[in-house]
């Protein structure tokens, strides 16, 4: 039981992600998390604004149920399957993040400075969170998939477009962390 409560190593986690995809494929579906964002836009009335949102969203109901499960899974893992939520990242990352003002690096699951409730009273933090989310949402639809749809499903299906997208994910991430972080933090 104790081993379940510790962070799960990569060689357990990676195969379990592959298993998630395998189950969804065997159920006749696909593994892709960001398409739910499009479905939610349609449900919220986006179909009145753009052709992109005019599709039979009920056919995507299954994926919303998966997403609902993911929320529940996060709740269960946080409250019942974890003793210490601190994430033991490497010393160089901790040092760098502390220089940027992320004091919680090495002691928390998420940076308190970004994801603690005090973030709601800091306009600058809120702006960065909105921008980050915006880029994820816009980029995922432009690229036609996110980490699950391209990096796992697409590459598993040997799709060259997915390889281009995944290289793009890493180029963007490296630019953000190495070039933009020093400017904004």
């Amino acid at each position: 039981m104790d081993i379940l409560l510790q962070p799960w190593p990569w060689y357990v986690s990676g195969p379990l992600i592959a298993l998630t995809m395998a189950i969804l494929i065997l159920l006749g579906k696909r593994f892709g998390m960001s398409s739910n964002l499009r479905t939610l836009c349609t449900i919220a009335g986006g179909d009145r604004a753009a052709e992109f949102f005019r599709f039979d969203w009920k056919a995507q109901r299954w994926n919303l149920l998966v997403a609902l499960g993911v929320v529940i899974g996060g709740f269960i893992a946080m409250n019942f399957l974890t003793l210490d939520t601190a994430v033991a990242i490497g010393p160089e990352s901790i040092g760098q993040l502390q220089q940027y003002g992320f004091e919680s690096a090495g002691n928390a699951y998420m940076p308190v400075e970004f994801f603690g409730n005090e973030a709601f009273s800091r306009p600058r933090t809120l702006l960065l969170l909105v921008i980050g989310g915006f880029l994820v949402g816009f980029g995922a639809r432009y690229a036609g998939g996110c980490t699950s749809g391209h990096a796992i499903s697409g590459l598993s299906n040997l799709q060259l477009p997915s390889l281009i997208a995944v290289i793009g994910f890493f180029v963007g991430g490296l630019v953000m962390v190495h070039l933009i972080f020093p400017l904004i933090f």
């Binding site: 998390m33 960001s34 739910n36 964002l37 993911v70 998420m110 940076p111 970004f114 960065l128 969170l129 921008i131 980050g132 989310g133 915006f134 880029l135 994820v136 949402g137 816009f138 980029g139 995922a140 639809r141 432009y142 690229a143 036609g144 996110c146 980490t147 699950s148 391209h150 477009p161 997915s162 281009i164 997208a165 995944v166 290289i167 793009g168 994910f169 890493f170 180029v171 963007g172 991430g173 490296l174 630019v175 953000m176 962390v177 933009i180």
Partner: peptide, 20 residues
């Protein structure tokens, strides 16, 4: 894929979270 991918990556690193 290239442009959308880069934009997604910028957001992934900033927000620290992809959709899942």
């Amino acid at each position: 894929y290239a442009v959308g991918g880069v934009l997604f990556g910028l957001g992934w690193a900033l927000a620290g979270a992809c959709p899942g």
